[in-house]
Design a protein around this nucleic acid. Structure first.
Lengths: 239, 239
DNA sequence: CCGCCGGTGTTGACAGTGACCATATAGTGG
DNA sequence: CCACTATATGGTCACTGTCAACACCGGCGG
């Protein structure tokens, strides 16, 4: 469990990555300020100096806690993933039918995402994450894995109960089914945020239909229907 | 059909948005340079001055063709969508089974996307596109709609042939089914680009499974299986 | 044929930025 | 009590996006 902890209260020193000296807890103050800026301006092109200004410190103070601006954004993204995870967990609490849980959590996922578009965008790729040469967004990566685990848990339980056409003991199959569900909700969220989904459809309508098709696919998907793309291919390989 | 036209040859003057005067065709040269920079650096934080340098003009020349840097990026994104559209069309040419066409085009979509991650990212949201206050990325938006139309055509034909469980005469249902397919491939592409899909899975494996589930969902989805999220909901609304 | 004119490219300038350096300060361990 | 080190500060640099004023040049009306 990754703890970025942007909550309001002061934590015990031994839990804080960098104990408060002069400012109190500048690291958290910076994350809070940056998060507020992302939310207000719906953008993360604000300057690091602006963040410092908001936190009431000099323009160079942030560099004591974050080597680069990228690292601060990474921490903000991690907070976003933690909130997402908590939202998902709260939504599925007490639901036993895993198809229902998947549908509900999927809806919550999309609603949480479009509730703060810039933050959601920031969570995925403060830069070209994967092969970005230098430092990677480790915090966001870890927090994202935690959020993903919620979805994976639903799929796993649903596989065990026979709700989804996935072999319960095959962890790879479960991971792939999770990827499928995540792709659906992530893609839908992004398309809505980008304003290319619809227009002319209510958000609820789009969510319901996309998730409905996804659940139907997970239920019916099996060796019976599954036909590799390979079998459909007629000409040579692409490219 | 939107024509951004970054092809190499010189076009007749009456087709060019801004006929060549001093430079030849600076507008296209700028787009080409920017596209090359996006591809090389896998990032679009390069400076407008760098683009101008590459095109061999002064640092302010670009402003005669693009009011802001954002507008140049918009044009680059539009080129990306045109390439995507052409790739999809080439892939499905001659395929009659619309399930196969959807699977093949979906595979091509993802491969094209991850083939140039930064460009794909740029295509969706040079900034927070929709409510970004000022000017919108009109070129990319239009070109994106053209690419989307390819997918929609597949769904429509498949609905007509009874391949997909969608009423062929219901354009809204077709649009929503298209949204579902688009969400799946878009989401998968983004997750792979971000490096959060997998790891431990081959790209082909992920594509095959995600698209397989999507196709299965589109085939089986119907009033029989479709159960509104509303019906699953027990507690009050989210949030 | 000429001179004007507007689209095109250039030079110069400005405020603001990310990142580095040396320096000051304030808790902490010895 | 004192050094030590993490923390914060001010100064600086190259660079950026954008604006304004100026130079170029090809097509147009006369």
């Amino acid at each position: 469990m990754v703890t970025v902890n942007t909550g309001g209260t002061i934590m015990p020193k031994f839990l804080s990555a960098s104990p408060p000296y002069h400012h109190g807890d500048l690291r958290r103050a910076l994350i809070d300020s940056a998060l507020a800026l992302v939310t207000e301006e719906q953008d993360w092109t604000f300057s690091l100096r602006e963040v410092a200004r908001r936190a009431g410190v000099s323009h160079n103070a942030p560099y004591n806690h974050f080597p680069e601006k990228r690292d601060l954004l990474d921490a903000v993204a991690a907070v976003g993933f933690e909130r997402l995870r908590e939202g998902l967990l709260a939504t599925i609490a007490g639901i036993d039918d895993m198809a229902a849980a998947l549908a509900m959590s999927g809806e919550a996922y999309v609603l949480l995402g479009i509730g703060n578009p810039a933050l959601y965008r920031l969570m995925f790729g403060p830069a070209l994450s994967v092969s970005g040469g230098g430092a990677q967004p480790m915090l966001a990566r870890a927090a994202g894995a935690e959020a993903r685990a919620v979805l994976q848990g639903i799929i796993r339980r649903g596989a065990g109960a026979g709700t989804f056409a996935v072999a319960a003991e095959d962890e790879r199959a479960i991971a792939l089914a999770t990827l499928s569900a995540w792709s659906a909700v992530h893609g839908l969220t992004m398309l809505i945020i980008d304003g290319v989904a619809g227009p002319g459809f209510a958000v609820e309508e789009m969510i319901e239909r996309v998730i409905g098709i996804e659940v139907a696919g997970l239920r019916s998907f099996s060796a019976r229907i599954r036909r590799p793309i390979r079998a459909w291919r007629r000409k040579g390989d692409l490219r």
